[in-house]
Design a protein around this nucleic acid. Structure first.
Lengths: 342, 342
DNA sequence: CATCCTGTTGACAACGTTGTCCAGGGCCTA
DNA sequence: TAGGCCCTGGACAACGTTGTCAACAGGATG
């Protein structure tokens, strides 16, 4: 056995190629290609012979080679924060459905909220030459994407805006949603309202905080020290922040939770207390109806679908200026946000 | 402008190649390749020139071409039922983490519980020449995978066994878990216990039903007509089944829910009733602790991690006979399963 | 000064597919 | 029957990268 043969044996476990099929069927290489791609110009008889050879050898076209030749990978990349987060599951699924409808596969990765990892992932996807990219950014500077975008990789940012680079974006109305939620608490008689949110580095976190401040200002309420806590959504920290706000001589009577993870922890803390505490959370949660949690809901699936449709419109040739879509949120009253101050 | 040029312009939006970088830096093609891959044998001075050309042109290596040459794609495929399902999010994330540790990207797809779509997805991934495949099967005949496996695509089945093909599997102990859950209800005094599960086509569904029957038989209880319902997990159907079992002259006093979606609907139905009904569900659910739902928990992340580690061990050369791993489940008592019969 | 060695560099083929183009055979028409 | 056309099929180059190998320069050694 010579070296060449041994080498090829270790590749793809020795998969048959079109050349092998052609040899077995006694036809030319291109004829096999035609059969595999259902191109016209092949006699039924020849086609049958080729098909038999394909089945006998277990041939499957190598899309890597095809991609190289054709220049399109029929795949799109999705970089999000954490696939295990209940908000991103439906979003990802919606993107996948749209991709499937366009015959594309989905490659995804989680940045774990780490800007460096986000960049690493995005660039790996670009190296794979995905046709398009949907990014839920962790970082706030995306200039590293410039050469890629210039080179033609369609890109849509989701949930949070891109930094220093002009691309399509699909966002939820974080400011308006939070403002409405806090106003809802105020309307039910609360004046001492705490806000617990994600890290200030994250755009949605600061937008929601801005909504909180706007609602408070609208009602003529001065936000006191200690009513606002921004930081990681780690349960320990959120728990500490919530307990801090709910203790002391003048505790808050209501909490606004900046996202689903915060809400979950807040519910736990409140459940342990005797005195009832009102709560409105940003993002809906499974079973929130049973627990009677009032939320500001953003439709994750709609966000994903909208973003993916934008992306494919770009891939189909749309070349208008980058657009910014903002999706409305919905207040869903379920009880926890309608409790009066204790 | 001649035709060749126009053609190349539409590919990848005219990305620069190593050849372009080489021309600009005034070096040979292979030298660029060496720099890009940090191979030894390049003078610092040459390396600097090449690097400058790379930055100036915005070059990024085309991994499609690389893959074709090297024979490894450094990507693995994951086919599951529905990415939006809270059980699969963490599973998928765990697989991704392991893949990342091995420098591989994750391509995933949802079969939507449709065997045909599963096959279509799996074969598309094989055509991409993923190095390995993790499949949560929807169908029960996987002979279509034989040529692929023979050709060297490492494969691990998860959650449900493969049909007619000999591969590695990572399963949860559905039978044992269900048996334990039902026995738990019996230990708390129940004798009239209903079982609501997924479609009988699905292996875990029948295994759990088998566990139910085993527990009942162990306790000397005869299962009556109407206590068992298998079918889609569509909320409407589950609701109808649950209401049927809870009505009539001799209703069941406890329910065993075959999976997380069934549990959610069962909780809703039970919440609407006056008479308390005991409940144990298979699969843990977020916030189940707050709702006091007793569950049989299988650790989705552990399942995903185990499967991915198996896969990469195969990719690293392990060639023992296909193994079947069964992970234990845990009963978590939280109240709903400890209610006495009404 | 001839020789050898080492370290850097580039020419070339190959990976498996598809696009282009040409050859040959059969059929129709004049 | 010659000429033209259509239909089928195949040879060949190209996609962008990496592995192999040979060339070359410069220094050390005899």
């Amino acid at each position: 056995m010579d070296r060449t043969a041994r080498h090829s044996e270790t590749r793809y476990g020795n998969r048959p190629t079109m050349k092998d099929v052609a040899a077995r069927a006694g036809v030319g290489l291109k004829t096999v290609s035609r059969v595999v791609n259902s191109e016209p110009g092949v006699t039924p008889d020849t086609e049958r012979r080729v098909q038999e050879a394909i089945d006998a050898l277990g041939f499957r076209r190598n899309d890597s080679a095809r991609v190289l030749r054709k220049g399109r990978t029929a795949s799109i990349g999705l970089v999000l924060e954490d696939l295990a987060d209940p908000f991103y599951g439906p979003l990802s699924r919606a993107v996948e459905e749209v991709a499937r409808a366009h015959g594309a596969l989905l490659i995804n990765g989680s940045s774990a909220e780490d800007p460096e990892r986000e960049q690493e992932l995005v660039l790996a996807l670009c190296a794979r030459r995905v046709d398009g990219l949907i990014v839920i950014p962790a970082g706030d500077d995306h200039r590293y994407l410039e050469p890629e975008i210039k080179a033609g990789i369609a890109t849509v940012f989701v949930d949070r805006p891109a930094g220093h680079v002009d691309v399509d974006m699909v966002l939820s109305d974080s400011f308006g949603g939070a403002r409405e939620g806090v106003a809802h608490l105020i309307a039910h008689g609360h004046r001492r309202i705490g806000f617990i949110g994600d890290q200030p580095r994250i755009h949605t976190a600061t937008e929601r905080l801005r909504g909180y401040h706007a609602a408070m200002r609208d009602a003529g309420i001065t936000v006191e020290d200690g009513w606002v806590s921004l930081g990681s959504t780690d349960p320990e920290r959120v728990r500490a922040a919530a307990e801090e706000m709910l203790s002391g001589p003048e505790p808050v009577t209501a909490l606004f939770a900046g996202n689903n993870r915060v809400t979950v922890t807040a519910v736990r803390v409140i459940a342990e207390r005797e005195r009832p505490v009102a709560l409105v959370g940003f993002d809906d949660i499974e079973l929130a109806d049973l627990l009677g949690i009032t939320v500001i809901s953003q439709d994750a699936a709609a966000v994903g679908r909208t973003a993916a449709e934008h992306l494919f419109r770009r891939l189909d040739g749309a070349d208008h200026a980058p657009a910014r879509v903002e999706l409305a949120t919905t207040l869903i009253p379920r009880g926890s946000g309608e409790l009066p101050p204790a």
